[in-house]
Design a protein around this nucleic acid. Sequence first.
DNA 1: TATGGTTACGTTATAATATAACACTATGTC
DNA 2: GACATAGTGTTATATTATAACGTAACCATA
Lengths: 165, 165
Amino acid sequence: MSPKAQPPGIAFRKHDHRRCQRQLLAEATQLCAERNLRLTSRRRQVLEILLASHQPMGAYDILAKLNRTAPNEQIAPPIVYRALEFLLGEGLIHRIESLNAFISCAHPGHRCGAQFLICRDCDQVAELEVSDNGLLAEAGSLGFAVDHSVVEITGVCAECQKHVG
Amino acid sequence: MSPKAQPPGIAFRKHDHRRCQRQLLAEATQLCAERNLRLTSRRRQVLEILLASHQPMGAYDILAKLNRTAPNEQIAPPIVYRALEFLLGEGLIHRIESLNAFISCAHPGHRCGAQFLICRDCDQVAELEVSDNGLLAEAGSLGFAVDHSVVEITGVCAECQKHVG
DNA sequence: TATGGTTACGTTATAATATAACACTATGTC
DNA sequence: GACATAGTGTTATATTATAACGTAACCATA
């Protein structure tokens, strides 16, 4: 029953981001192919914007980026929200409820619930994947059929604690 | 390490609600007295509205109720949000992030993180209080200093599973 | 009980987030 | 090509939340 965790979220570690980004995009492409879904250029655009950082972004931030990229067309909110909806549905991104923001998924397609550590100092978000958090078991034992779980822990990451505040 | 849970949230059980409501309001009153804080009539009003049901309510629902109660005055959003902020700060209510809604706390003043089971069929919300969900320990072991945790599990409660859909 | 500091409230305006509704376009199938 | 369907574009609007500033209540102390 004791939970096992992955290493800390990628956001809190240095890594070859170019490579990481390419990798995740490739996984997304393959996953959509397998599922017979269309990763259209809009959807890819939005995913790429989220992959460009491992930071959460608000829908309107994404919108602004889209509009900055293509200043001739004027993109409106529903376009972004629809792309986000698709990506969420396929487990390619997550929504961070407590930030009203979206973030690319570190383990695309797993569809199992993720957990987030949110540093309120550096605003970085780490995605964990704890296999069993006990709570889901608890829910099950109450006869509650789980659809989706939101686990978001806010605080200060180790790095920011050093540079005090 | 294995989590221990309270019985399922009060919302999923029959209970003497009048009594429960009075009890929670009394606890809130005492707690504010102890902490030397003012449970003003506005704050109490908002708390009472939330205590009237164990259901989550949006800020604007609360606002509407306030305005229905006193049709002569015209109350505006900031008044509600300020009362909510106070009540949240003292652990008298919780915010359900995934619903943008607020709910009275079943264990006022504990200040430790709560967990919620949200039935998407009957819209009831049960508050659990799992002593150790493993995740907080995990966060700790990563050197992450936890401030606040959001745990919200959406699904279908046992009752609603019977009455099928 | 006047005075001043602080906390809470009231009011207006507006920001930020999200969706409804409907028209148009692209894609795949026969 | 004709059709069905899925995706996109566009306009308008709903929903949730806060900034900014003035007023009132509370409360300590002189």
